[in-house]
Write a protein that binds this DNA or RNA. Structure first.
Lengths: 190, 190
DNA sequence: GTCTATAACGAGATAGAC
DNA sequence: GTCTATCTCGTTATAGAC
C-alpha cells in the first residue's frame, strides 16, 4: 500500500520538516540531504517550493476527508465521533510535531496565495464538521450545550491547533488531554 | 513616556515583524529598511539575532507581568479579570497579528535555547495566573466549573494562542469572541 | 552610534550531461 | 529521473572609516 517512489518520500519528509520547523525554516537542501538526493532532483518533482507546499496541502486535505469519512462510518455516538476527531490531533501531539495546517497558518502572511487558500479551506472544513456533530448530538438529546455550536466548534479547532503548538514549549502532560476534558465537560458529556 | 531611541524602535519593529511573519521569515535587512538604518547598526544594538529575540521576549514578559498586575489591581470580580485577560489577546487579533510568544512557539525547534526557555516561562505564567483566578472565583462561589482549573486554564491559553493564529487564515468575525463566549459559558458566567 | 564594504554561507532555481 | 555545475539573491555577521 505504501508508495515508496521519490515523490512520495519527498512529500512525507517535507511534511514532517514543516511540522517540525515551519515552512520558512525548512529548505530544499535540508529536504534533499534527509531523503538522500540532490536539490535539483526535488525541483524535477516539484518545480518550486510553492508547488511542493500546494501538493502537501492537497494531500493533507484529501487525508482529512478520508479520516472524517471513516469516523462518520465507524462512530456510534456523536460524542464518540468528536473524541475520534480529537484523537487525530492527540496522535500528532505524541509525534512531537504540530498540524501541517497549523504550522502554515502561523506563517500565513509569507505564503503564496494558493497555499493560503488551502489552509483556509482545511480550517473551515474542520470547524464545519465539528459543528455538524455537535448539532446532531444536541438534536438527539445526546449532548447539551450552553451556547452556539459554531462558537464551540471554532473554539475546539483553535484549542487543538493552539494546544499542539504550545505542547512542545510547555512540556508536561499532553495539552490535548486537557482540551478534550474541557470540551467534553462543556457538552455535559465527560 | 514613549522611548524613541533606536534600540526601542528596533525592538518595536522587530516584534511586529515576528508577529506578522514569524521568527525565521523576518530578517535584519527587512528590519533595517523598515526602521531606516543599515543592518550593521542593528548589530551594534543587538549583536546577534538570538540576542534581539531574547531582548524581545524579556520585554514581552515584563509587559505581561505589568498587565497582570494592572488587571489584579483594577478588576473587581474574577470573571471581570479573566475577561480583561482575554481582551489583551482580543486587541492583538484586531491588529491582525499573533502573540509574539505564539509565533515563537511555532518555530520552537529552530530557536536558540535562551529563547525557548523564555517562551516556556511566558506560557506557564499565563496558565498559572488564569488557574488562580478560576480557583478564586470558584472559592468565592462566583464561578462554577465542572473539571479542574488547570485543565480549563491550559485550554484557554491554547485556544487564545490558536485563535490568534487561525484568525488571519479563517477570516470572518474574530475567533476570540467565540473563545470568550465558550470559556465563560463553561464557567456558568456568560 | 551609524555608515560603507565585504565576507561567508545558504536559499531557490536552471541548464545540460548522463 | 538524477546528477554536476552554476546563477542570483538574501542571510547573518564583521572590520574599519566617519
Amino acid at each position: 500500500m505504501t508508495n515508496n517512489d521519490t515523490a512520495t518520500q519527498l512529500l512525507d519528509t517535507a511534511q514532517l520538516l514543516i511540522q517540525k520547523r515551519g515552512y520558512n525554516a525548512f529548505s530544499y537542501k535540508h529536504l534533499a540531504t534527509t531523503v538522500g538526493v540532490r536539490t535539483s532532483s526535488i525541483h524535477y518533482h516539484f518545480q518550486t517550493k510553492a508547488d511542493l507546499g500546494k501538493a502537501l496541502m492537497d494531500r493533507y486535505l484529501a487525508e482529512l476527508e478520508q479520516a472524517l469519512d471513516n469516523i462518520d462510518r465507524k462512530g456510534r455516538t456523536n460524542k464518540a465521533k468528536l473524541k475520534q476527531f480529537i484523537s487525530l490531533y492527540r496522535e500528532t501531539e505524541d509525534d512531537g510535531v504540530v498540524c501541517l495546517c497549523g504550522s502554515l497558518a502561523t506563517d500565513y502572511e509569507t505564503l503564496p496565495v494558493a497555499l493560503q487558500r488551502a489552509v483556509s479551506t482545511y480550517l473551515r472544513r474542520c470547524e464545519q464538521w465539528v459543528a455538524e456533530k455537535i448539532d446532531e448530538g444536541v438534536g438527539e438529546g445526546e449532548l447539551a450545550l450552553s451556547g452556539s455550536s459554531t462558537d464551540a466548534a471554532a473554539t475546539l479547532v483553535a484549542s487543538l491547533q493552539g494546544g499542539l503548538i504550545l505542547s512542545r514549549a510547555r512540556g508536561g502532560p499532553p495539552v490535548l488531554d486537557n482540551v478534550q476534558r474541557t470540551f467534553l465537560a462543556a457538552l455535559n458529556a465527560s
